[in-house]
Design a protein around this nucleic acid. Sequence first.
DNA 1: CGCACCACAATTTTT
DNA 2: TTGTGGTGCG
Length: 813
Amino acid sequence: MTNAKLMKSFIAARRDAIAADFRHLNDMQLEGALTTEGPLLILAGAGSGKTTVLINRIANLIRYGRGSDTDFVPDGITEQDVLLLRQYAASPAAADAQRVRELCAVEPVEPWRIIAITFTNKAAGELRSRLEAMLGADAGDIWAQTFHSACVRILRRDAELVGFSHSFTIYDTSDSVSTMKRIIKDLNLDEKTFTANYILGQISRAKDSMQSAEEYCAEAEASYDIRKKFVGMAYREYERRLRDANALDFDDLIFYTVKLLRENEDVRDYYRRRFRYVLIDEYQDTNRSQYMLASLLTGEDGNICVVGDDDQSIYKFRGATIENILLFEQRYKKARVIRLEQNYRSTGHILSAANAVIRNNTGRKGKELWTAQGPGEKLTLSIADDEAAEARFVASTILDGFAAGANWRDFAVLYRMNAQSNQFEYAFKRAGIPYRVIGGTRFFDRAEIKDVLAYLCVVANPADDLRLSRIVNVPARGIGQKTVDTARDIAAAESRPLFDVLKGCRDYAELSRSASKILAFTDMIDSLRGLLGELSPDEIYDAVLESSGYLRALQEKNDPENEARIENVKELKSNILGYMNEVEEPTLAGFLDEIALYTTLDQYDEDSDYAVMMTMHSVKGLEFPTVFVVGAENGIFPGVQAIGDPDEMEEERRLCYVAITRAKKKLYLTCARRRMLFGRTQANLPSRFIDEIPVEDIDKPEEKRPAMWNFGGTDGGSGYEEYARYNREPQTRTYSTPSQRPARAHSPAPAPKSAAMSLTVGDRVVHKAFGNGTVTAVTPMAGGDALLSVDFGGTVKKLMLKTASAFMKKEQT
DNA sequence: CGCACCACAATTTTT
DNA sequence: TTGTGGTGCG
């Protein structure tokens, strides 16, 4: 064998041997895991196992370095070696694994040379734990973080270089909003034209394109756009105030990190040398500055691997740009592209529907999901009279599923807007279905949580004027708004922290009237600050609740809302304890860092048995056996704003694709003929997306569809008339679920007016989902309804009589 | 200073 | 319909 030939066969055998370690992957996944060098774009369809690829790719890097993707051949290779590798590839157990590893490894990568960036803490956490399961202790050295936490980590080292102290605080969205509201007032801008959200949106876009306030103002000057000039003023002031407060908002974290890396060659080189391999997850959600960050971190070898799905890009409104994916190959020459199209999640009809819908989009890379599973159940369209009936249909279907042995957690209700959750909560409560609403007002957005956190921030950072003004009079301690305003003005005039001014309030005539109260407050904060070195974060937390009087104030007010608030405040403590368990040197500042980036206190807990409801946006990345996409109506989904705007429509369609692909076994689409939304009743047509689903994939109500339902239909006649007639028809029937469920095929969702049976305490009942039970309490309610407590063999359910009668009958004795 | 009442607006939101 | 923010009174 010639030398060249030997080398060639060695390279091939080496790759095969390495591949043997990853034989549980499919061909495309394997390709992703073994392609280690240079820019790589992995287009990963929904449910195609992209995290698996990511994990295995990292494992491969650590074990074999670039062995699977290089022409390098070590000296002294023999034919024996090639044979050994081939033997290993054929049956790994039979070969000397140690020797194989030596032969295959080419510069194995130290774990700390790998950075994997995700968007959510949840994804980062999942990545970390799966890496740990696969690699053990090595996993701890891999940077597996969100964009924002990676930036915090980088900035904590070198914040001085971009003009902040290393102990900067992080402003969340509402901090930014309240700062901006003040600015609008102080600059006397017209609050109608310039809402805080509008200006912040403009600033966010500016930062996304790396434009500082100064640059933005310059551009505004040149543009003769008066509006823009005002925004520029606000931007400049916002930037100044955050700098004074030593605070960065979410966008700043990225912005200043990019700035830091751009302007400081040594810092940039440090990270580039350190990180030999950069991986970015959910690449379709990156914005421009995040792209810049990624490319700044990528060293000369260009080892950047991005994973994403252009069809799942649903965050354009937050600045995400699908271009990052679409242009990847142009930006990184020699980039390789791998498509993962085999779906392991859903059955055939579901995937066929998803493919068909997304096919209507232009401007995409193009993918077709396929599955080795069978066709499974068809989709089901259900049309209800109104939103209440829609919710009852869903509740009823879930009860059926539960009766058939499913768990509550197998069901998810997905809607376009949080406002739609009400009806479902109502129906689920009445039917006794345990559920949780994910998203909406989030834990850390609750006033009581923000208050308590504000105390902690002020204790940790004396310069945090924003949080200080939030709590200075919470609970009420006789320091009024006017007093705070004057103090703030003084602070601004002297450019000192507000806290210092308050401490020195005796020196200012304007403040002397409330001086004693102010000093009581500052003393309290000071003594809490004195505890910083001595007590652990949870003890400080207790001390804050105690000395601030916050907890007492909550307890004294006897309103039922406060029960929940107190619970929340306690819940925060368990957060602190959780943090302390995870970190080696827990500090209050460290906790606050974490919390600032950890907005969602991941409420979705897969272990507990609840049906869940959430927006189609929040469901990305999750999966459920049965999914309900509700409110599938033109005007709701797609929303009104999207109609007539092709780009928006494509975004909505991607959202639809995301929603459909969450379902593993069964997907329901529901709509209502009439619905009340924001106090207005409207009649919407079924979503145009439903029309994009092939008829062979979906069961629809077999009723005559009005002409207007067929887009571009030529049935003649006035669509409006037909539609109006259609809406006037008495609608009492419900539409059967497919024949796979004969048990319920003819049992319609209950109408609320159905005659309620009469029940008294002690009656025995049979519920179709919960089985046999005994009525333990009956509380009469308004409208002739009653709240029942029924003991079903140990678990007591609260049910509404009228709703429950549809699912339950009295046992005859 | 604190509370009650009225006007107004309202996709989606990983950090 | 619901929640929030601003104003005016006790």
